[in-house]
Design a protein around this nucleic acid. Structure first.
Length: 577
DNA sequence: CACTAGAAAATTTTT
DNA sequence: TTTTCTAGTG
């Protein structure tokens, strides 16, 4: 594809964003306005206008987003791509270039373990009352004012960092901190353009890094402050404003044509957020938003399952007959998504779907079941690389003597390029695990890779638990996980008091979370709540969320209740709002 | 050191 | 309700 053809496929605003030059650029991209499209097209355009790939950096927050961009770029027929990756992977490559020794970046569980140790070293006993979380949040600051932190947090900070340097390991945030240092020292003159996706998700530390890069590169920030839902990990919608105010001249382009949601949903969503988003749907008015409240979460789930069954034309024998009256076009199960605030809420849904015989899948954050075997091999390999011993032996949870023994066996296996039964036996015995056939096969591959001296980070790259949307199944996920996705049919359930604005959470962020949920729907949107709900084994009187009142005008209440004409019930319902 | 009973807490998530 | 952590035994 050539550049002119590509530009011709964009709308005016998108084209303005893609072609912007001479200043920093802020693209405000509401739901379904073609954010990724603009990002990809702009990179393509810049390359076509003569910028070399090395002069462009595109950063995202997830590897998934990065691969999507890369894929779309290659589909446009580019042979040399610029660096497209996460903040962290870019930072890692910077660090790698500036040191002799390969840094060891801890995984989540390793960091947890180290924090535990740090707590102990700091003499903090008993429950940690969220100290760890506060430390992690503090670390999202550029040069955090730790002296002002109260005693325990300060003590934990110091003992944690003492351990990091003692063990010669880094955490993910250290990568960004090191990147800041490197850019401060060497500048980034080689970069002409830096594009940042999902800018509303940057932490203060990342914002600072971008600000540094802005000294010698033109920055393109794309995002939507209304979809900032990661405050608990240091992000803030404020950084969108600050980008505009603090980086010198910034051109702002607001994308207003929305290709996903029908107008009614956009109106409900923007009126809820209390902002005239100016989003214009390209899909017409759309159907009404259906809302229904239930007695308890089980009835709620059963109703949802029933609706899905009806919409997809019936999957069970019973509904096959009943389905003749279905008004809607036949739907596929993969068109349907059920969203909820917290994972525990999927339980009644799962039961109801099973009962109804409706297949479903969840992007279940695989409880980090990194098998103990590969975890161990990774640490043994690190030791074999000659890294500081203490950390890795500690992580292995075995005696040094045993570790040395296993290292030698691993060394031998690598040299011979084969997996000896004896080594397996020893691994099983000393690590107290059993190794299945599949793991054995994978272990052989790993040994082969280790032999080839490929970088450790590549060998032990954790597999992502991607959701396969081609599967004929309903998708169940949290509101957070749904950001960036869209489905023709969306059920947003559990809109209860203290559940959707989650109790004691930042109200504004909860609002944005609701906004995200509403705007996932490309056609039909169903909202449900419950009067009672089981939360952690406790029956709680919840009732409809106050959020629902704010979009009351846009709701199409389920007619069953209206037909029965029970004024008392109606009144009661109303008074709840 | 490994095990267990009992208490306390429990969103949301990426690298 | 279920998980997770601590303090206390054997």
């Amino acid at each position: 594809m050539n550049n002119q053809d590509l530009l011709a496929t964009l709308n005016d605003e998108q084209r303005a964003a893609v072609c912007s030059q001479g200043t920093h650029l802020l693209v405000i991209a509401g739901p379904g306005t073609g954010k990724t499209r603009v990002l990809v097209s702009r990179i393509f355009h810049l390359l076509n206008e003569g910028t070399r790939p090395e002069g462009i950096l595109a950063v995202t927050f997830t590897n998934k987003a990065a691969s999507e961009i890369k894929e779309r770029l290659s589909r446009l027929g580019l042979d040399r791509l610029p660096f497209v990756g996460t903040f962290h992977s870019w930072a890692y490559s910077l660090v790698l270039n500036s040191t002799k020794k390969r840094p060891y970046v801890m995984g989540e569980d390793e960091q947890r373990q180290l924090l535990r140790e740090a707590l102990e070293a700091a003499g903090i006993k008993g429950r940690d009352k969220g100290l760890k979380d506060r430390l992690l949040l503090l670390k999202q600051q550029y040069k955090p004012k730790i002296d002002e932190a109260e005693g325990e947090l300060l003590a934990l900070w110091e003992s944690y960092h003492a351990l990091l340097s003692e063990y010669d390991v880094m955490d993910y945030d250290d990568l960004i901190i090191r990147a800041v240092e490197i850019v401060e020292k060497n500048g980034s003159g080689y970069l002409s353009y830096v594009l940042v996706d999902e800018f509303q998700d940057v932490s203060q530390l990342q914002f600072h890094l971008v600000r540094l890069l802005a000294r010698s590169s033109l920055i393109t920030a794309i995002g939507d402050a209304n979809q900032a839902i990661y405050g608990f990990r240091g992000a803030s919608p404020r950084f969108m404003e600050r980008f505009r105010n603090e980086l010198g001249p910034v051109e702002t382009v607001r994308l207003s044509k929305a290709y996903r949601c029908p107008q009614r949903i956009l109106d409900a969503a923007s009126s809820f957020i209390g902002e005239d988003s100016g989003l214009v749907s390209q899909k017409g008015t759309g159907e009404g938003i259906v809302y229904k409240c239930f007695e308890n979460e089980e009835r709620e789930a059963a109703w949802i399952a029933g609706q899905i069954d009806r919409l997809v034309g019936g999957t069970s024998f019973e509904s096959l007959n009943a389905a003749t009256g279905a008004a809607d076009a036949q739907r596929s199960l993969s068109d349907v998504c059920i969203l909820y605030r917290a994972r525990f809420m999927s339980e009644p849904l799962v039961s109801a779907l099973l009962r109804q015989g409706i297949p479903f899948h969840t992007p279940f954050r695989q409880r980090r079941k990194v098998s103990r075997l590969f975890f161990a091999i990774r640490h043994l390999a690190a030791l074999l690389e000659g890294r500081t011993e203490d950390f890795h032996i500690k992580m292995l949870g075995i005696k040094k003597k045993e570790a040395v023994f296993l290292i030698n066996q691993l060394k031998e296996a690598i040299e011979q390029g084969s997996l000896q039964d004896e080594f397996l036996k020893q691994l099983e015995a000393r690590l107290n695990i059993s190794v299945g056939d599949q793991e054995k096969q994978k272990l052989r591959e790993i040994i082969g890779l280790l032999r080839s001296k490929a970088p450790l980070s590549l060998i032990f790259k954790e597999e992502q638990d991607e959701l396969d949307f081609s599967v004929e199944a309903v998708t169940l996920m949290t509101l957070h996980a749904s950001k960036g996705l869209e489905f023709p049919i969306v059920f947003l359930c559990g809109l209860d008091q203290d559940v959707l604005p989650w109790k004691d959470s930042d109200l504004d962020e909860e609002r944005r979370l609701f906004y995200v949920g509403l705007t996932r729907s490309a056609e039909h949107l169903f909202l449900t709540s419950s009067k009672r709900r089981k939360i952690y084994g406790r029956r709680v009187e919840t009732g409809p969320s106050a959020f629902l009142t704010k979009i009351n005008d846009y709701l199409h209440k389920d007619q069953q209740k209206a037909n029965r004409k029970k004024p008392s019930l109606k009144k009661k319902q109303k008074s709840l709002f």
